[in-house]
Design a binder for these strands. Sequence first.
DNA 1: GTCTATACGGCGATAGAC
DNA 2: GTCTATCGCCGTATAGAC
Lengths: 188, 188
Amino acid sequence: MAGRQGDTKAEIRRVAMELFTEQGYEATSLREIAERLGVTKAALYYHFRSKEDIVRSLFGDHLAALDELIAWAKTQTPGPRLRTEVIDRMLRLSVEHGRRAMQFALANQHVVRDLHPGKENVHERLNTLFEAITDPDATVQEALRTRVALLSINLTMFAAQGLDATDEQVEAAAREIAHRLAAEAAHG
Amino acid sequence: MAGRQGDTKAEIRRVAMELFTEQGYEATSLREIAERLGVTKAALYYHFRSKEDIVRSLFGDHLAALDELIAWAKTQTPGPRLRTEVIDRMLRLSVEHGRRAMQFALANQHVVRDLHPGKENVHERLNTLFEAITDPDATVQEALRTRVALLSINLTMFAAQGLDATDEQVEAAAREIAHRLAAEAAHG
DNA sequence: GTCTATACGGCGATAGAC
DNA sequence: GTCTATCGCCGTATAGAC
């Protein structure tokens, strides 16, 4: 009940992000978040419709940006050039949202997966993106390499946990790994 | 000695594996599992100490095998040969346990992560493995490539969802991707 | 507009009867 | 080995204080 009444909503988001990332989504109760802020959990319901809605407010922008990327990719012709460009755009998305946020998303992927601002879940949306950038006559091996190339961006950020690396080093490694995998998908 | 206990316990495991994989761990209640078997949820507590314990009974063997792999790796000298061998053993582990089980583990990684037959969680155990196979003087880039190489095995199995591929094709692709990443880690 | 008090059904878990 | 009954906590909902 401090004097910081105006930014309660932002405070909830900050504390939720912290606890969700440290302990996981299910292991963090609304009572826990509320107590940290010195309010009752009912107060959270003034600012957010549900617990899931808090996560939505943390990742909605990123998911919308992902949808934009998919929509754009669908207008392009599959090929090595498109794959390279999509990887760069995906990397930019992940970097902008922050390594910490990506780590939360990976650790709680079952929660992020079913955040549905639209109607498809993240799995289905990613599948759409994969199909848009994969050659129609690609072998299974090539298709898998393309998919793994894209997913390796976030996997690299995940792998960097417990490693003493700067954000720039992680970003550079992620780009390099993804691009190599994508290049091999073309002439593997 | 065993009587009918073996049957019921096995049935619980079968139904739990089914529902956990389809709907996720948190979205599946013990009442749901019990009702499918025509018993009350309290009856499940005769066979298992907790909900988490059911998952432990499904993945304990795999986690124990992972610990064996780590213990073995720690007795070896880091280098390209060791990395190749660890990848092959890891792949064998994942294949033996089945793609379906690996998909469950990836979709519910927050649950599997905190299954502690010992005391370290899966993240910490994997970190131990990474350190055992990475050269002490490796750059951040090289260390990340080694980590991503190992993690790419399960990532490939994950990426194969929604793709019309046989188990053999997925396994071959996983091996090829992991080995290439590991090879690049040596002379990147 | 911002928050508290209170209540609800469902959850995982336990105690004890049969 | 399975049951009923009950526990405390959870996310959620709403009435109403200021």
